[in-house]
Design a protein around this nucleic acid. Structure first.
Lengths: 221, 221
DNA sequence: TAGATTGTTAATCGATTAACAATC
DNA sequence: TAGATTGTTAATCGATTAACAATC
């Protein structure tokens, strides 16, 4: 992946993730009719340092007022603009198994204007069935549909053996962003971004911390 | 969270995640009857730098042989030992909705000896039903069951409004590790580790990269 | 004006990579 | 021995935090 540049400044990847979290906090503040918020309070809501909040925002401009803080509504709109979250995100999902089905009806997506518009499966018994309001298509229609439906992002929820092959097809079809739920490393060209979501790895590191913490508390008792 | 110390060295969080990925690659190599692997090849398999691989492993000891590389089987066992993945991980899941159900049958967990042993829901219509071979319990049995079943980790897949309340209960019951799929920030004591899994945030940053990349290619055409 | 809080610079901390002597 | 590759140190790069003048 090439570096991401905004107004001549290189933006760390982590900043983008946090922007999205700030936006969510601001959304809640707006619902509670809170008009302004300081970097301190915004940081507290997420367990961050206030300097980090100010620095993150400073990559993109000046949004606050010294002595006052940030105007909630304005800042939220600014962030949504930066993230492109003001437009609809058009998503395709490949592999309508248990996890795929769950994602099709994931409430968090709807809230953020992320729309899974098409779903594919290779199982003929699933094809043409309805999944959360959309028709499951045969995987043979993949390339054609990605184009006609102007898909931005592909979600992969297929068995491991099929992941790389489908990735290659999707990339050839012009897709540049893949959210990969399959626990293998995908090889893609440099201009394609893969976001890995890996439950087992997260679980294993949690368990490691747990084990370590247990030892630490044994020492102190 | 206190720092994680191993043999007097502070271990970066990212190292633990990668250890788990190394283990997975080694598992595949073992299945393909490959006996040894160099840091270079292990790095290639994950898109890393070979120095990173050697450095990560060096936190925990010396596992390789100069001129040869690492013995696949040995290294995998060593890593599983470090991660504690040689023991069974006992997990409870709260909230048997779409996502919760999908996780109950997630094949990646079974593969890594991660066992979801109990599941809870507050919906009386779900209670006592079977979910992937286990009986769904009423949420009122939460504290009691976490203890009798000796649960290590709790998975949270409940609506946002209920997440903090349930977190408090779970923490009072002595749980130290939570895998949180609910898109809100949870407040917990310092000795409890929360692992956030947030699809919307990942999706929004993917979309941001996509938008940026599109602009970059516009420039070059 | 006094208090609060921003935006930004400098200092710190942490993580990655390059380089290479040691060694199989 | 010659070639390969480790473990580790030093150099680089990047991200976080502290501090503070500017300013509402």
């Amino acid at each position: 992946m090439p570096d991401i540049i905004h107004n001549g400044k290189k933006i760390p990847k982590a900043v983008i993730k946090r922007l999205s979290l700030y936006s969510r906090v601001l959304q809640n503040l707006e619902l509670n009719d809170i008009k302004t918020i300081s970097s301190q309070l915004l940081a507290d809501a997420l367990g961050y340092n206030p300097a980090r909040v100010r620095k993150d925002l400073a990559y993109f401009g000046q949004f606050g007022t010294p002595g006052i803080g940030y105007h909630v509504k304005e800042l939220r709109e600014a962030i949504r603009n930066i993230l492109g979250a003001d437009r609809e995100t058009r998503v395709a999902l490949i592999g309508v198994g248990n996890l795929g089905s769950a994602l099709l009806s994931y409430p968090g997506f709807r809230k953020q204007d992320i729309h899974i518009i098409v779903a594919f499966d290779k199982d003929k018994r699933k094809v043409d069935r309805d999944a959360n309001g959309i028709r499951i298509r045969d995987i043979s229609e993949l390339e054609k549909t990605l184009n006609t439906e102007r898909i931005d992002i592909v979600i992969l929820t297929v068995p491991s053996e099929e992941a790389q092959g489908l990735t290659d097809r999707v990339v050839s079809a012009g897709i540049r962003a893949i959210m990969n739920f399959v626990p293998i490393h995908l090889t893609v060209p440099d201009n394609v971004k893969v976001q890995y979501v890996d439950f087992s790895t997260e679980m294993e590191s949690l368990f490691y911390y747990l084990k370590k913490n247990a030892k630490i508390s044994n020492f102190s008792t």
